[in-house]
């Protein structure tokens, strides 16, 4: 970290308590530590930890072979493939779209900029079921864009393309909101220096802007991906839910539950969490690598 006025490294004050590992609990004059931490831990245990631990335990009543059999069942395997494949595609599509919107919002002044900025969060604010039926109405063969797509021979709603559209919709704010603050803070001086030295727009983008926002962009992509994998409400209406073709993994959990197959449902839930977690670890490693290269 450098001071932006002098470009000198910021020196930690001598009394900075951080270099030393804190005691189990540091002494403080403030009251309420036991009460507030107590409430936090009890609530966390009851609402999050206890229920989620059951998710990890329940599949084992099938035995290891049973879990493997559940997950390799063609219908389940195809739903998992579809969910993760389209989620990845949608998150990657969100990268250029989100970057475009974030760039426009931070770099240009134009009428309606604040409105556009506020609208970015609409997919967060609009309940997923509402987004789901609205997107279906738009992309169904009778809808405005669905009819248009039909003319060029594209089936949008009730096909994997429909799922893709819903996931792009739901993921866009993650990329915009991750990249926007970094673009805002990106030293204009550095970019201007590059320009003064004769760098073209493209060179500036490639050598100055992209390395600086790389980690934030990747974090936005992984957030969008994680959300897309679990997404239910905005997808099930537009998906058509044909087994082996357009059936997503969360829907399969619901179907298993309706058949009172709790263990099978938990196994799919666990598999989804495990694959998401693995993907996030990979993205995190990439992010650390990019951050190091950006700094060097």
């Amino acid at each position: 970290m450098t001071d932006r006025f002098t470009a000198a490294p910021v020196v930690r004050p001598l009394n900075d308590p951080w270099p030393r590992r804190p005691r189990l609990v540091e002494h403080s004059v403030l009251p309420g530590f036991k009460l507030s931490l107590g409430i936090t831990l009890v609530y966390l245990a009851l609402i999050v930890l206890l229920p989620l631990s059951l998710l990890a335990i329940r599949p084992w009543e099938l035995g290891f072979d049973g879990i493997v059999k559940t997950l390799t069942d063609p219908r389940v395997a195809s739903a998992l493939r579809l969910t993760f494949g389209i989620s990845l595609l949608a998150a990657l599509t969100n990268a250029p779209l989100g970057l475009l919107v974030a760039w426009t919002l931070t770099r240009y002044q134009f009428p309606g900029r604040r409105l556009m900025d506020a609208l970015v969060d609409l997919p967060f604010a609009l309940p997923t079921a509402v987004a789901g039926i609205a997107l279906t109405a738009i992309y169904a063969p009778t809808g405005p864009l669905g009819a248009l797509a039909e003319k060029v021979g594209l089936k949008t709603a009730y096909s994997p393309l429909g799922i893709f559209i819903a996931l792009v919709f739901i993921g866009l704010p993650f990329v915009v909101r991750s990249v926007q603050p970094v673009l805002q803070d990106l030293d204009k001086d550095v970019e201007e220096a590059a320009q003064t030295l004769g760098a073209s727009d493209l060179q500036r983008a490639a050598y100055v802007v992209i390395p600086a926002i790389g980690p934030a962009l990747l974090s936005g992509i992984s957030l969008a991906f994680a959300r897309a994998v679990g997404e239910y409400g905005s997808v099930i209406f537009i998906a058509g839910n044909l087994p082996m073709k357009t059936e997503i993994a969360p829907l399969l959990i619901v179907i298993k539950l309706e058949q009172y197959d709790y263990a099978g449902a938990s196994a799919i839930g666990c598999a989804m969490l495990a694959i998401s977690f693995g993907a996030l670890v990979v993205m995190n490693i990439a992010q650390i690598y990019l951050a190091r290269r950006g700094r060097a």
Binding site: L50, P51, A226, G230, Y232, P250, Y262, G269, M272
Partner: peptide, 19 residues
Amino acid sequence: SISPVVSGLVWVLLFGAQG
């Protein structure tokens, strides 16, 4: 980072008929 469906499922595992 948990699917909403899983957030519902865990309560069924606790309190559902076969929970």
